[in-house]
Write a protein that binds this DNA or RNA. Sequence first.
DNA 1: CCTAGTGTTTCCAGTTACTGGAAGGTCAAG
DNA 2: CTTGACCTTCCAGTAACTGGAAACACTAGG
Lengths: 143, 143
Amino acid sequence: MNISAVADAAGLPVKTVRYYSDIGLVPAPARSGSGYRSYDDSALRKLVFVRRAREFGFSVGECRDLLGLYENRRRSSADVKRIAARRLEEIAEKQRELQSLHDELAHLVEACRGDHRPDCPIIDGLEARSPAAPARAPIDRPG
Amino acid sequence: MNISAVADAAGLPVKTVRYYSDIGLVPAPARSGSGYRSYDDSALRKLVFVRRAREFGFSVGECRDLLGLYENRRRSSADVKRIAARRLEEIAEKQRELQSLHDELAHLVEACRGDHRPDCPIIDGLEARSPAAPARAPIDRPG
DNA sequence: CCTAGTGTTTCCAGTTACTGGAAGGTCAAG
DNA sequence: CTTGACCTTCCAGTAACTGGAAACACTAGG
C-alpha cells in the first residue's frame, strides 16, 4: 500500500500518516525502490488504533504508551486501565468546567435583550465579578 | 502602574500583558522615560475584561471584537449577544462530544478487569469499532 | 517516446495563545 | 556602590498537525 491508500484505509490524512512516523509514533515504513513509503496490514492496524485513541482525546504521548501495550502480548490490562481512567477523569473535569461555563454564559445571554440599545448584561458580566481568578483553567479551544 | 502591578491587578501573567499589546489586542501603553510600560486604570479595565472573556473561552479574535463593543457606547447589545450565543453553542457542542466520549470510554474502563492479564476490553475497543470516522472533531486537549 | 496528470518525496513555515529563557538596562535600598 | 528585583527586547518552544513549494515517480493516452 502506498501512503494514500493506507491513509484512506486508516481514516487519516496523508500528511498525518507521514507525521506519525516522522515523530516515531508508528514505525517508519519500508520504502519502494524509488523512495515511496510502503505499508502493510500491521502498519494499517497501528494507524487505525492511533486514530481511535486520538479520537478519544489521548495525547500523542499516551497513544505511544497505548500502542506499546497494544503490541505487547504480555501486557497487564491494569496498565491500560490506568491510562484510560486518567483520561476519563480529565474528560469529567473538562465536563465540569464546561458545565459551569455554560451555565454562567447562558445566564448572561438570556438576560441580554439583544436589541439596538447598548446596555448589555453580557458586557457587564465580563467586566467584573471574579476579582482575579487564581486558576485560569478553562482557556482553551483550538478546534 | 508598572507592568507587574497591572498584571497582578488584572490577574494575568506579566508575559501575557506584554503579549496582548504586542498583538494589538489592547492598546500599547505609555512609556516612562526609561522605557518602562506605564498603565492607567482604563488599561487595567481592558485587561480584566479580556481575562474574563478568555476565561469564558472566547478566542483572542472574539476578545478583540468584544473589547471593541465594550469600548463603544453606541453598541447594540444584539452584536454582543450574537458573539456570546455563538460561543454558547460551541460550548454546548463540546459538551455533547465530551458526553459521548465519556460514556464510551467509561464503558470500556468498567469492562476492564485491570489485573495482570493481557486481555483488555479497552484495547479491543480502540482497535476497531468506528470504521473510519469522517469527522475527527473531538481531537484536542491543549490544557 | 512524449506528455499530461496525479501521486509522492523533502523541507519549511504557519497555526493558537502563550511561556521560558537569555542578554542587558533601570531602580530603590542599604 | 553593590545587590537584587524589575524591566526591556528578541528568539525559541509548546501540541499536533496543516499548507505549500520544488522536484521526482508513475500511469495512461496519443
